[in-house]
Write a protein that binds this DNA or RNA. Structure first.
Lengths: 154, 154
DNA sequence: TTTTATAGTCAACCATGGTTTACTAACTCC
DNA sequence: GGAGTTAGTAAACCATGGTTGACTATAAAA
């Protein structure tokens, strides 16, 4: 296999393309949310917490379990996120040790705006692909994720 | 949008899944190359240099230009990669300042091996999806990459 | 031939995203 | 009510993947 084939291989294999598209979307999402929130300080690690925080609120321990990192780490990130005013915290009325973390639901920095942005990227994708291709691709990719997440290493 | 919708959105949107699958494949690829090369010390940053090194060799400056990082950084990584015997170095006969970096072409550490590994993951994917779905997904994803790489931010 | 630009290295430093250890406060089980 | 467990925090530390500044050696331009 010569250099040209090598290059082609790298550019057209699905695995390579999936790595690439994942990075591009991620980058776009972060930029986009930073933009709408007007929060250039928003970090990747903050965004990574989003999917683990429920709308009605989630405790720090629960977030750390879901994400698979230490609660110390989550605690720190949550603190930063409250400082930049995208999260609020209240003490769990049922357990005063526990802090319930939730997205701000009103005001300029309301999560809806950020969420809309994330959704907008998905809409961009779906506009580009069309509904049929969007759905079949989603199905295929979800299948791949399951596949890679089950233990099937040689 | 209630909690359920929110959760579903995050868990099933194509953008979210593409980010996820990209990470999984990347991780799998690194593990796999480490495994085949028997090089547990191989870092992500080493692997990231691969596409920028030509078969006939490439200078450190050139690699750094291609990758868009400082030559100091590349210099360090190249040094590490020679220590673990992935790369060799010779002085450019045309310019004694310049060092030509190239993959060891014999033994275990050839670029072909690395390629085979990437291809193996791709074969896993294609086995899982089937040929038709593989090709349509590849087409869709490649289209998305083009789309995201052209400047279409609002 | 002197000046300027380039190739590479080294060391100091930095941001990111974690971990571990040690601790306090509160809940739960007995 | 005391023992053990859990929620959260704080501080020290760590790996990764960079950057910047200072330096040497060589090449190229004037």
């Amino acid at each position: 296999m010569d250099k040209t084939n090598f290059t082609n291989q790298k550019n057209t294999s699905l695995s390579h393309q999936l790595i690439k598209v994942g990075r591009l979307i991620n980058e776009r999402g972060l930029d986009s949310v930073r933009d709408v929130f007007n929060l250039p300080e928003l970090k990747q690690s903050h965004l990574d917490l989003f999917p683990h925080i429920d709308f009605e609120g989630t405790s720090i321990s629960e977030i750390s379990k879901r994400k698979g990192v230490s609660k110390q780490s989550v605690s720190k990130l949550v603190k930063e996120m409250t400082h930049i005013k995208i999260l609020s915290i209240k003490t769990d009325p049922e357990d005063s040790r526990s802090k319930i973390v939730f997205f701000k639901t009103s005001g300029f920095y309301s999560i809806q705006k950020g969420l809309e942005e994330l959704v907008a990227i998905d809409r961009l994708i779906s506009d580009h692909l069309g509904n049929k291709a969007y759905n079949s691709t989603l199905e295929n990719i979800s299948g791949l994720i399951d596949f890679f997440q089950t233990d099937n290493r040689k």
